[in-house]
């Protein structure tokens, strides 16, 4: 189960972003513009399918001068972002607030 909410500065994810749920999130990411935050504090799990949605959206926004910033990232998710090399492609702000 994945809950996706559009919030003031971007989008908030809660639950599990896997191959079954990630496609449904894509339509919400398509609504973002400029610089947008992805609040991951309640995201329990992300697989390559979810990473694909983040990457596609980030590339679209970067092409227009913006981009995604991944914020309030918990250690499990941070590990996945590191292994995938996404920590070199996105600004990642961990849950403890340190950059």
């Amino acid at each position: 189960m994945l809950d996706v909410q559009l919030v003031d500065r971007g989008i908030r994810l809660a639950g599990r972003m896997d191959a079954a749920t990630a496609p449904g999130a894509e339509v919400h990411f398509e609504r973002l513009s400029g610089l947008a935050d992805v609040d991951m504090s309640a995201l329990e799990y992300i697989s390559s399918a979810g990473l694909g949605v983040l990457l596609k959206s980030h590339k679209r926004l970067v092409a227009g001068g913006g981009g995604l910033r991944l914020v309030r990232v918990n250690p499990h998710i941070a590990e996945i972002l590191h292994y995938s090399g996404f920590d070199m492609l996105f600004e990642v702000v961990p849950a403890d607030g340190r950059a």
Binding site: S47, S48, G52, V53, K56, I80, Y83, S84
Partner: peptide, 8 residues
């Protein structure tokens, strides 16, 4: 997008 699965 894609291709990351087995790497992970």
């Amino acid at each position: 997008a894609g291709g990351l699965g087995l790497h992970l």
